[in-house]
Structure formats: C-alpha cells, structure tokens
Design a protein around this nucleic acid. Sequence first.
DNA 1: CTCAATCCGTACCGGATCGGTCCCATATGC
DNA 2: GCATATGGGACCGATCCGGTACGGATTGAG
Lengths: 151, 151
Amino acid sequence: MLRLSKKVDYGLILLSRLAQRSETASAREMAAKYDLPPSMIANVLKALTGAGILVSTRGAQGGYELARPAGRISLAEIVEALEGPFSLVDCVGDEVICRYTEVCPTHDPIRVVHQRFHDFMAKLTLAEIVGDARFGTLQTADGHEKAHLPG
Amino acid sequence: MLRLSKKVDYGLILLSRLAQRSETASAREMAAKYDLPPSMIANVLKALTGAGILVSTRGAQGGYELARPAGRISLAEIVEALEGPFSLVDCVGDEVICRYTEVCPTHDPIRVVHQRFHDFMAKLTLAEIVGDARFGTLQTADGHEKAHLPG
DNA sequence: CTCAATCCGTACCGGATCGGTCCCATATGC
DNA sequence: GCATATGGGACCGATCCGGTACGGATTGAG
Ligand code: FES
Ligand code: FES
C-alpha cells in the first residue's frame, strides 16, 4: 500500500519535537510524553542516529538531538533511514534490466513517476513540515495555499 | 513500505497500453502480451472498470478501453481504485480525532504531508506519465528538466 | 440455438512484511 | 557502584500482498 510505515510516522513525531526545542531528549522521555511504544521509539531513534540524522549522547543525562538544522533534513532521508532504500516498484534501480524491456510500455514511464516521487520527498524538509503547520499553511486540493499568518 | 502495490504497477502497464492505442483490448490478450499473471490482470481490469476509469464490452470480441482521455485520468484515481482510499498514516481522514491531539506535535504536520502527496498524485495524469517518457523528459534530482525533444 | 469468448463477483491461500517486544552489551554521570 | 542511557540484535503474532480459482452473466459467431 502507498502508506508510511509506523516507524516513519513515529519518526516524524520525534523529529518534530526535536526540531522545535533544541534541548536533547531521551527515548524514554519522549515515549512517555507521546504515549508511544517505548521499544519502538528506541529502535526508531537508533535508526535515525545510524543514518546521521540525529546525534546521540550516551550515559546518564544522555539523549538525542538533530545532527543538522531542520531545513537540511529531507523527508526522503527520513523515509530511507527507516524503511530502507526507496523504490516505488521492483524495476526501479540503477539500470535494472527488466524482464521484457522491449515489450513493457512502462519501463520509462514508471521510472519517471518514481523519480518525481523521490524529488518531491527530497525537496520537502523537516523545517517545512513543521513550519507549514505551525504557520497554518495548508495546501488545498487545487494547490491553492491559504496562510493564516504566524502568531 | 512506501511502495506501489503490484496491482498499481500492472495497472499502469495496462493503462499505458490502452492510452497509446485506442482499440479495445481483452484481459487475456494483454496478459499474454506482457507475460503477466492472467488472473491478476483480470482483477485489475475489473477494479479499474468498477472505478469508472475503464469501460468494458462483454461477450466475444469484447474488451476494455479508457473511459476518458488520458489527460483526465490521474495517478491518484488509479491508486485509489486499486488500493482503496489513500492515507499516508492512520490519523488522516475527515477530521479524525487522534488519540492525543493536544500533545501530538504532528497532528497538523502529517496532514500537510498527506495533502501534498495527494495533490501531487492528483495532478499527475496518465497522459503525462506516458507522454513524458515518450518525449524523453526526465526530471533530475534538482528539478531541472532535460527534454530530448519528440521524434 | 449452441458454443466459445469475455467480463463479473468473490472467495481462498501461502508467504512476505509490519508492528511491537525483549534481551544483553556498552557507555557515562553521580 | 549503580542508575540511566544508547547500541545492536533476535524474535513473534497479526496483517497485508501477490497470486489463483471458480461459478455466473453477457454477447457475438456459426
Ligand atoms: S518490467 Fe521494468 S519497467 Fe516494465
Ligand atoms: S495522533 Fe493523529 S496526528 Fe498525531
């Protein structure tokens, strides 16, 4: 299904939190605050750290914080960190030889769609995700934006 | 995983075919031509017909054809016809009351992301998908487009 | 009128993936 | 030393996906 996994869902919650306050926060702490499965949260944070999106401090008083400003963290990165390499369909990779490239009418079309999805996610930054909502900017179905203005 | 199901994958192949030639084609015929699982192809075509994207002709010499010009068929429609209603995460619906709306920092942000995905798919038409590839228009990672020009 | 081709609806199944849990090792501050 | 943290896995049940199958309805051809 065309759907974000729970890991990414939780990841966005955690990253939003870390983007808004610049203090470090521990896994236990955040899991409690948002009432989310502690073990999962721990795993998600580990993965984000491994991918270089977060940096961690071990030991007592340790925790996590963003490795970079939220403006330089893309949705594509987050998704790939938590779900593995992104590919809309099987035959999208570095010059994958498809079964019947000659006869398949979507060898190119499907790569175009894949590329567009990827670009879309690569351009959408954590800062935008958090900021748009904070400022009440919601895109409508026809692409028209309504800004409620920041407070 | 953020991935198109096989049904949509096959659907795009079939729709591309139907968009390029305006003759009707039967399920059996297409399954054979592209060497795809006949039963699945049949089911996919049924679903697309039920959603009003294709029209069918029964009986001998019957088959399927597009219900509308390819320019008026969006990727969003195709996906929703074959995978059911599109929602990136659970808490995206018509005013779903989330568990802890007050405390969750992504109630709005995640809806923004969802909305953007949906708009993106709603604006991408079958005609564009087929046409872009035919004309060699491939979007690069930074959004710059190279057109090889139609032949 | 009969028959084959074709669509229609729906049920079924094995395997992959997901959501979630758990454990033990390591590092650090008090 | 010990409580608090992260690090790196393995593990399991529920769900979803990819694929198959079957009986029924409709239509054109001979
Ligand atoms: S099989 Fe790869 S594009 Fe069709
Ligand atoms: S629970 Fe619905 S947005 Fe967080």
